[in-house]
Amino acid sequence: MSLRIHFSVNGTHKELLVESGETLLEMLRGRLGLTGVKRGCSVGECGACTVLVDGLNVDSCIYLAAWADGREIRTLEGLADGDDLNPVQQAFVDHGAVQCGFCTPGLVMTATAMAEKGIKLTRDEVRRELSGHLCRCTGYQNIMTAVEAVLED
């Protein structure tokens, strides 16, 4: 069954016909070419596919495209303003938080949601907020440093 949905992605209004079983991940990658959204497990375990839906970080692999109807979606592609990276992106670059880069899109989205809330968090709270993301390269250390640097500013 196909459904017609209206939503915005990275500030642009979209209208699409999607399949009822289609995930938001499949829609963003397959129909809109937003390949910054990564597929690591397809079942909500690794967080690589995280996007923001109305400001909330969700695993797009277990979120139906149909649920995006009427909502505002943000992906990694929409964060920078021209050549100006958003503070989280910049911090990931500056603090060596990027290695293979496959977990990076999801983590940057979650950290962006955290930063935009503007709430001060302890180190343990930062860990908890990021705990839905797996990374095999970094041991999370430089990711923590980058996110904390953004939250402190």
Binding site: L34, L76, E77
Partner: peptide, 21 residues
């Protein structure tokens, strides 16, 4: 020094195998 691919990776432009559609 910073990685030459860091910006490409944080902006979602870096293409992995799955991204060549």
């Amino acid at each position: 020094l910073k990685r030459p691919d860091a910006i490409t990776k944080v902006t979602g432009k870096a293409k992995y195998v799955a991204d060549y559609q």
